[in-house]
Amino acid sequence: MPSFTSSSDRAPKVGLKTLLLGTAMVTAVCVGAVEMFWRGHDVVPSYDNGIKSWSYIRQKIEASPTKQATVLLGASRMISAVSLAAYREGIEFDRLYQLSVAGEAPLATLKDIAEKTSFSGVVVMALSSHGLYDEAWREQAGHVDYYHRNWGMNNRVNFWFDREAQSRLVSRNPRYGMTSVVRALIEGDQTLFGPAMNVVTEERQRNTDYSQIDIDGYKAARVARASKTAEAFTPARKGEWMANLDMMMGYIRQIEKRGGRVVIVRMPTSEGHWDVDQKALPRAEYWDVLASKHADSLHFMDIPGMADIPLPDSSHVGVQDQAYFTKLLVTAIQDLGVYDGR
């Protein structure tokens, strides 16, 4: 057998015009039909809230050394609770960046902002007491690492195109990708074929509409998961928790030395989630210790009206209450004097 066979030599003759026109037409018809199908089921385009959109926002912070910038850190509670428009309206500054990552504590990002930027604005960080264990430092480290290692021109250009496609096509949302749809069809999951529970905006704000799902089952599953996770947070680990609190305070001081401010917020939870949290990490033994070390701390129980906001899954604010929640939060932050003189 010869060591070299030129595949080009055997290339069959293919009419370029027929091929390109035919392929383009078939693609346009198929993609058009799929899009019409989704739109017919009230599904709208949504942005992927992955590592690239995070890097895109992180990059903006690099270019915003101004004292008027605000960065939101945290996990899913922060992403879904804050309306960026309402926040901007409250503080009257435009530079507001959502850097929270669903399911991951924000310590690695705080460290990154403290060490790798000259950021001197306001950091609003949603943190629960369970976000101060050793494993929490690793949770957003993947995002930070990706940003510093991979967020070059190539990925930025690619992201720009992808974002444009996501803004126009439902099919570019991973939830409605081919494999997800086939899986839903085989499993008989009908929830896919209706309005989505989560719609993510270009700025990484997540609008969650809990009316789309069986909320009781969803809530029970989430509380059960939180309960299982909380088993790891034993009193024996208090020393580790305290050491991490000190380490976090070090990074906060770094930002404050540059003229920045860091506000730590305990986001609202109710019934199931609150009970789990209180059982594992009682407020008096954990949160109040944190608050005694850092004056710019806000607990939702201490902000008038915040504890009354309905939380359908006992952990997240729905899209209907985002603006109201944000207004309360901004007022409480302003009361700390964080935005004075900025």
Binding site: T18, G22, T23, M25, C30, D48, D162, S171, G177, M178
Partner: peptide, 20 residues
């Protein structure tokens, strides 16, 4: 050629429908 175009069109559609 027309059949090739159809097959390629379907492939391209599936590529577009495979984000992630």
């Amino acid at each position: 050629d027309l059949l090739k175009a159809m097959v390629l069109g379907i492939m391209l559609t599936l590529i577009i429908m495979s984000p992630g």
